[in-house]
Design a protein around this nucleic acid. Sequence first.
DNA 1: ACACAATGATACAATTAGTACAATATTAGG
DNA 2: CCTAATATTGTACTAATTGTATCATTGTGT
Lengths: 137, 137
Amino acid sequence: MSEKKLTLQLDFHSKLPIYTQIVSQIQSQLANGILKPGDQLPTVRALALELRVNFNTVARAYRMLDEARIISTQQGRGTYITEIPPPEVTKKLREESLVELTNRFISEAIRLGFSEREISQMVRDRLNVHKEAKDKE
Amino acid sequence: MSEKKLTLQLDFHSKLPIYTQIVSQIQSQLANGILKPGDQLPTVRALALELRVNFNTVARAYRMLDEARIISTQQGRGTYITEIPPPEVTKKLREESLVELTNRFISEAIRLGFSEREISQMVRDRLNVHKEAKDKE
DNA sequence: ACACAATGATACAATTAGTACAATATTAGG
DNA sequence: CCTAATATTGTACTAATTGTATCATTGTGT
């Protein structure tokens, strides 16, 4: 039995609905290898209990992931990460995870009152610092 | 769930519209620490009932506060004080907070296996999207 | 009387919760 | 072993709670 612990961090005050948070966090865990093809996910009820949400909320997230062919849900059996996630799906997932990460960063910065110009300038800046630090190794 | 009582004093004879009074009183309660980031506000209907006003009036106040990023409203779920309210900080602190935020973003992206090139491209990309969305207003 | 802003009424949409059900797996009796 | 009862799992449908959108009404200033 290889049921993953699957620790998710929900923000109940977020603009984002719970079910989309579940979807995107599972996606990103798959994108960066925390979850692997074949892994069994917790049951809708188990995960719901842990996250303190209604199991239909988890079921809705699972359904979305199922429709995206990322997981396979089987009534009476459980849910599993798809064995052969089409390469273009994983590629797409990877892309999407960066999109989301970047969006979160930008909206956070905007909320803090920074302008687009300041943000892009700072990103250039810190990327340069990062690059220099790496080159010196 | 810590739904605040949120006692507001309205003056129905004031020149100031009800919704303005709601807005400014919530703002001042936040400034005074009576309300804190993450606090859930009463539902538009509950507060309206208590204040003996139409719930659309409360909704209007909430919408204004939402646009000012002071609260976060989510259809079907509720209304919350924004977790990270726009800080009126000094220029230096402000600068440092963007540095911190950017560093966290970059290292997270690097950890996920993205290259500097991909990161800067994506930031440009999402900033453009953000800008366009804003321009449309 | 008119124009405009504020408020109210009504219908709508999104999210989550509740309940009953169907498919599959597991276990108990023989 | 085989079969039937039971448990476990996801599904479907519905209800309740929330904020949103639109238009009507009211009231005030000119």
